[in-house]
Design a protein around this nucleic acid. Structure first.
Lengths: 345, 345
DNA sequence: CTGAAAGCGCTTACAG
DNA sequence: CTGAAAGCGCTTACAG
């Protein structure tokens, strides 16, 4: 029987498997198998048609909680990110969401801005909520990793090489080399680097790529040209100021992140330096607004959506007890705009 | 008994209420009531202590699916947004997430970039997943609203006045007035407006606020100074170009959205106009990067986090069968930077 | 080819 | 003050 509850005039029906079974004149088990497309089910076409009709007429939708309880599968994947305001994660989320939907899964994104640590997020989730957890970004402590392992939940680091040997990353080193080689080809010889946060794995890989590109170009690394920043405009601006206070300023800056590069651009202007006439700037990650900065920023576009999508696929398909270490190899593209040019004179 | 399954060498224990009850020497019902802090439970302190100890020793966590099935409450609220890349939603999400966590709830955010429509998102969710749905932004059709009503799920529009009379919004009109009054006070008399998308309710309210401020300042509305844009840099740039192609260009521009204003700034530069010497620019919504634009952008900071938080609170507490129409009254603040100045000569 | 039954892990009226 | 029992809505081995 379809239960109807009057809730202040608003009818809240809840249609169950049993309702459909009754209507179609079959057992619940049959309906369940039809709903789930059980390949082992051998059913007369007309019976199936009757079931399908009943489902449609009653507008039946399986209850996710009941299903999860029975199967211990929830059909949702968790994604933990440091901050929704960082546009880089927006693209990762979009890719992950699409991949999840393609597998009839739903994505649950949490950030550390609200819940605090990944650990707090895990506690909030508890068992029976997600089938696995994606952890993006750099703010994961060893303690949190231990908790993860203890929960018996499949997990995967996204663009961060974790201790557990379960991660999917982008070729950040390659991205850095592409950026720096672009500057070398333009003729720059004093190429500075505004790096990312010390604890970010991406920052380290980009810094390594920077070093490799300098070597490949026959240029010596100058420690005074390497300053640490973060992935925010303020941090980029502060880093640029430190760089320009040095004795012999660079003719080009490779910034580890596009958001930080916004701060770098403004700091250069504040120092009275013209981009790209006096200093060139190139950054990792492209953004719609990069084309509208002054000057339009040259960037290296990363396959962030592919990263998010691949992360979901691996989480749902790779065995949870074995290492996964994958580098997403989708194309990385140099987007040349107007912030890079040959060095002055 | 604690069931242990060997999963490729990884032990996946699942501790249930029954395990805790056995260990503490009480009935499952007692443990359940202790876990849920049932005020009607009259229990000897030492018994409670024994239960609590058992919970801790076994590291018991209630299974969310089982709980949901029994109570028909999921402890999760859904939030549907148009696009994760829009930084405005990042702040709303953060506020909503915090408010949800404060109520031991989890937030599930979905976007239309992946799933398509709000309807597709609802279908993906199905029953038993969320206790209610928050719908932010403007891309909601009447058909979707009908589906919503049919699902028997509490819902609330966020910063959009929906047909159903269930919404929480910001004082967008006031924000527009604050911005335009700032320009009027600086002495501007030809104040243009780059508006938002035609179907966005926020765009309409900001436009109304713009009109009201002009009237209050004794200025006539000039239709040639009002152009439609959207909430993206490209749209802002295109709108600004159209504005400047007119016969008598404005001395100031009020932009409906900070992201669009980035495009407006670049378009003004492309026309050889200096900001703020020749044209002033002010926009709704503040962003960390606004301080690093060239020139640093004057904005109107909106209480977006408060909006997100209030939305969750209302969704979870307001009766689902009655209209809710609330305007969040947290302070709206003019952030004066360097993109606004008195008009030339 | 289809049905009956057990059970996933909880909560909640009810009994004592 | 605590326990026994029913049941939320499914799925899945098993019986016939």
């Amino acid at each position: 029987m379809t239960r109807s509850t009057e809730d202040g005039g608003r009818r809240i029906r809840r249609v169950t498997l049993a309702d459909v079974a009754r209507r179609a004149g079959v057992d619940k088990a049959v309906v369940s198998r039809v709903v789930n497309n059980d390949p082992l089910l051998n059913i007369r076409p007309e019976t199936r048609a009757r079931v399908l009709a009943a489902i449609k007429e009653l507008d039946y939708r399986p209850n996710a909680a009941a299903r999860s309880l029975r199967t211990t599968r929830t059909g949702t994947v968790g994604l933990f990110i440091p901050d929704f305001a960082n546009p880089v994660y927006a693209e990762i989320i979009t890719g992950a969401e699409t991949a999840a939907a393609a597998r009839d899964c739903v994505l649950m994104v949490g950030s550390s801005t609200a819940g605090g640590s990944a650990r707090g997020y895990l506690d909030l989730l508890g068992p029976g909520r997600v089938d696995g957890l994606l952890l993006a970004g750099g703010a994961i402590t060893d303690e949190e990793q231990a908790v993860l392992a203890d929960r018996g939940l499949p997990w995967l680091f996204v663009n961060r090489r974790g201790g557990g040997g379960r991660h999917v990353v982008l070729a950040d080193g390659l991205a850095a080399r592409i950026a720096v080689e672009h500057l070398v080809e333009l003729g720059h010889r004093r190429i500075a680097h505004v790096g990312g946060p010390a604890d970010a794995d991406t920052a380290q890989r980009r810094r390594d790529g920077y070093a490799a590109a300098l070597r490949a170009g026959g240029l010596a690394e100058d420690p005074r040209l390497i300053v640490q920043g973060d992935y925010e405009p303020d941090g980029g601006a502060r880093a640029a100021h430190r760089l320009l206070d040095g004795p012999e300023p660079p003719t080009a800056v490779f910034v580890a992140n596009v958001t930080a590069a916004i701060g770098v651009l403004s700091a250069l202007q504040a120092h009275g330096l013209s981009v790209p006439d006096q200093v060139s700037v190139v950054a990792v990650h492209d953004l719609p607004l990069a084309a509208h900065l002054v000057p339009p920023l040259t960037t290296v576009r990363m396959p962030l959506q592919a990263l998010g999508a691949r992360a979901v696929e691996l989480l749902l398909s790779a065995p949870a007890d074995q290492p996964v270490e994958e580098v997403v190899r989708d194309p990385i593209e140099l987007v040349v705009r107007h912030s890079t040019a040959p060095p002055p004179h």
